[in-house]
Simulated scan of single mutants.
Amino acid sequence: MMFDLSGKVAVVTGGSRGIGRSICEQMAAHGAKVVVSSRKLPACEEVVKGIKDKGGEAIAVAASISDKAQLENLVASARKAYAKIDIMVCNAASNPYFGPLAGLKEEVFGKIMQNNVMSNLWLMNMVGPEMAERKDGAFIIVSSIGAFVGSAHIAAYNMSKAADISLVKSLAMEWGKHNIRVNAIAPGLIQTDFARALWENPQIRSAQEGKAALKRIGQPDDIGGVAVFLASKAGAFVCGQCIIADGGVIGAGAE
């Protein structure tokens, strides 16, 4: 019962694949009505079909995190369908640059920060007031263990994810008094399309597996369950935190 989400409405960005899809499916499996969102509607509808086939309830709403108006429409569509939003999961992110900071263009860095940080602030300000009125809500940002380390390849992305953790701490201070739990999840290397350039690289994958206490990279469901915990009664006293789910890369340390 501690993980029961019956009667709750969850909105998940980047919900059509990988970690986001797992979060949608796990939220639905635990009783939540889910609004699956990403840029491509057909991909979202595929997830919705899978949820409904298992007896769950869900709808699909296309939205790009780079467009504030589209996010406003996402929130409005969720309320129109289910009257409220109890759980907001900001999973969508972008990483259009792979390479050293010396080659990073200003406009690309600006896009990364807007998509990965500012969009989350937009969504908090959109859903926060109604959660505050009910004195109940969960706001979750999917960050990354990249927030805690340097990188020669994805430094700009890591910087945006570090900013997300700082954002979570400040939002928790602002909204916690209304019983809104604001938290982050920092996954390690997960076998998703988004991280394909990393886990398909034999050297990078081997290095990550070697560092991990569990000696493997993660799967999407390794993160979906953490999101359910944070959204449920089981996580009722967790606020302003970042849960690292990386198989023991950071926690265990390398020998």
Score class of each variant (00 low, 15 high):
V127C: 10
E174A: 13
A152S: 13
M126T: 02
L189N: 01
S144A: 12
A152D: 13
D193Q: 08
V149Y: 13
L167P: 00
R196W: 05
G146Q: 03
E174D: 15
A93T: 06
A155P: 00
I141Q: 03
M113E: 06
L171M: 15
H178S: 15
A172T: 04
Y97N: 05
K169E: 11
P100S: 09
K111T: 10
N183R: 06
F139M: 13
L101C: 14
R181I: 11
G103H: 11
V168P: 00
I141R: 00
E200P: 02
P96T: 07
V117R: 01
E133R: 14
V108P: 03
A186F: 02
G150C: 10
K177G: 02
S166H: 14
A93Q: 04
N116R: 06
A138H: 10
D164A: 13
K169A: 10
A138T: 10
G137K: 04
R181V: 08
N179S: 12
A197P: 02
E133K: 15
M159T: 14
G146A: 01
R181T: 07
V149D: 08
D136H: 09
M113D: 04
S166P: 01
G137H: 07
A155W: 04
S94Y: 02
S144D: 12
K161C: 06
A132M: 13
I190L: 03
A186G: 04
G188R: 00
M159N: 12
S143G: 05
L189F: 10
L101R: 03
T192Y: 05
H153P: 00
E130G: 07
M118W: 03
M118R: 11
V127L: 09
I154M: 12
F139C: 01
G176S: 08
V108W: 14
W199G: 01
I180T: 08
A132C: 14
E200S: 11
G137R: 06
Y97H: 14
G188V: 02
S94R: 03
Y157N: 11
A156D: 12
Y97M: 09
V108A: 08
M131W: 13
F194S: 06
N201Y: 15
A93G: 12
